[in-house]
Design a protein around this nucleic acid. Structure first.
Lengths: 139, 139
DNA sequence: CTCACTGCAAAGGTTTTGCAGTGGG
DNA sequence: CCCACTGCAAAACCTTTGCAGTGAG
């Protein structure tokens, strides 16, 4: 994802393109590791030395509302953000706090098939996400 | 789950049985809706008018560590607690903040079978939880 | 009796808010 | 130009911590 694509992504939602917004979205794509607001602040400190932490939170909120990014939650109580909006799942490390993306079309199909035929009473099914818990070798 | 069962549950982990711990665990079982620390505080205010909020957090932490309850996370940034420790999934309302439990042995089997044969590189699989997103009729 | 637990209050950390000033369209 | 956005600082909020006093085993 290059700068022009990022600008286009912001503009396509009718949002103003500001250097801060571009830097934040670029940070999320480049960090690629479900960063916290603080991680993002550190990353963009070089290009945006004067950005306020409040601005970061406001921008993240707007990006989430416009479905450009998604919130990711863990048992640790900091909010984290995910720039991938296509359907995917997460590998959670139960020892460290690492999260990795997990894509598998077979898994999606199995579950789509399951939910298509399964009726859940009083509930309108939209989508699903699988939290896959375990440990990474690298930890 | 009656009081004696709750006391037994606490004692079985070698923990001291205190009125505060019993009240908190009873609240989680009776509220039955993945309460926050604050929800629990409100619920037990009648029986435990002097309990400190710090005590509630300390007790919850101990119950989680002893696997009597589990933490549940949502996009809202308050931690929530779940008294059901057997394997189950969650229905999340994307409009309000309601969470309901979802049990289905067929779903568990489908996914256990999937993960048994699927090798994830550099990752030791432990277990999985499915977040089922949608809306409740009652909302 | 003794040590783990509680109550209280203060501190810590993250996120939100209000407002004046700025800059993108 | 104008209104949306930013920077700044304060405040709100949830959760943790330290310590003295208490009570369960």
């Amino acid at each position: 994802m290059n700068i022009d694509q990022i600008r286009e992504k912001i503009a396509s939602k009718g949002l103003k393109i500001t250097p801060q917004r571009v830097a934040i979205l670029e940070a999320i794509y480049n960090l690629n590791n479900h960063p916290t607001a603080e991680n993002i602040a550190d990353y963009i400190k070089i290009s945006q030395p004067n950005i306020a932490i409040g601005t970061i939170y406001k921008v993240l909120e707007i990006l989430v509302k416009n479905k450009i990014i998604k919130k990711v939650t863990t048992e640790a109580d900091k909010m984290r953000y995910d720039g991938i909006t296509e359907h995917h799942h997460h590998l959670y490390c139960i020892e460290c706090d690492l999260i990795e993306d997990y894509f598998d079309e077979e898994l999606n199909q199995i579950l789509e098939q399951y939910f298509a035929k399964k009726k859940i009473n009083g509930f309108h099914f939209k989508n699903f996400v699988v939290q896959i818990n375990g440990t990474f070798d690298k930890c």
